[in-house]
Design a protein around this nucleic acid. Structure first.
Lengths: 139, 139
DNA sequence: ATTCTTGCAAATCATTTGCACTTTA
DNA sequence: TAAAGTGCAAATGATTTGCAAGAAT
């Protein structure tokens, strides 16, 4: 918890109880949660917590480079702690999102492709995850 | 227009005036439009057209493999005629979406990655498009 | 005559906003 | 005490749904 506090400060974000808890959640749950998932989980222990704070905090974290927004889901934004570049797979059966190792995303910031200046690179797969495949076979 | 009609029928979709017009729009405007953009443009000439029809038709087209949905924009779904695989760049200045040629997306359907069965592959870039770069330099 | 297509209005759901209250430096 | 953080309720905006009317086969 102290580490998280220091981490926020290093990123230029004054730490508050809510921010620490949201950051802690993201560190512990590498499940690419939605704002609502974070809210539902944290509000059990922090009844006064509001969704607005979740949204405000996630935007702040994003602007400071602490989290990344994934638009792999059509209707909802998902969040993950910023880390080494990787791809994502969303399972069309169970909806879970998996990290996928890849070397493709190592293109440097400010690369130029077809005349455009690239800042971000997202590689998404959709398909059936290995757990759902296993369940299918068992039937 | 007759070609479009035939095209729909080949895909197993009974053609109707509205469906043809929506398909025609998508063929002519390779701008990855939203449902609303299609609606705004077509309803000028077809005042009775409703947004519900746009949504219904786009879902039908998607299910029949005629269009692809892009979730490169956070809050809105964008559509394009299904064609050879390519990547996309969304300009963070002007919002335009560009097609990007790439060989990376030629992985076959049903490929398996890390145990998961892949059905779709999306490669998105975000950055500054060449037109916006040019405008920046001119200042 | 039955089935498909369409349109309207209302509902839904994620996210944002305005504003007032509270906490903190 | 001013600035930052938070919460509530209402607003927004994209998409969906229920249902009834219209068109097509």
């Amino acid at each position: 918890m102290k580490d998280l506090k220091r981490y926020l400060q290093k990123k230029g974000i004054p730490s508050s109880y809510h921010r620490l808890k949201i950051l802690e959640y993201l560190v512990k749950h590498r499940t690419h949660p939605t704002a609502d998932m974070i809210y539902k989980s944290l509000s059990k222990k922090i009844p006064t917590l509001s969704k607005t704070t979740i949204y405000t905090t996630l935007k702040l974290f994003r602007d400071k480079g602490i989290v990344k927004e994934l638009s792999i889901s059509e209707n909802e934004t998902r969040y993950e702690i910023n880390s080494i570049p990787h791809a994502h797979l969303k399972c069309i059966k169970c909806g879970k999102i998996y990290d996928i190792k890849t070397k493709l995303l190592l293109l440097k910031n400010e690369s130029v492709i077809e005349g455009h200046q690239i800042e971000e690179c997202h590689l998404y797969f959709k398909g059936v995850c290995k757990n759902c495949l296993k369940k299918q076979k068992e039937k």
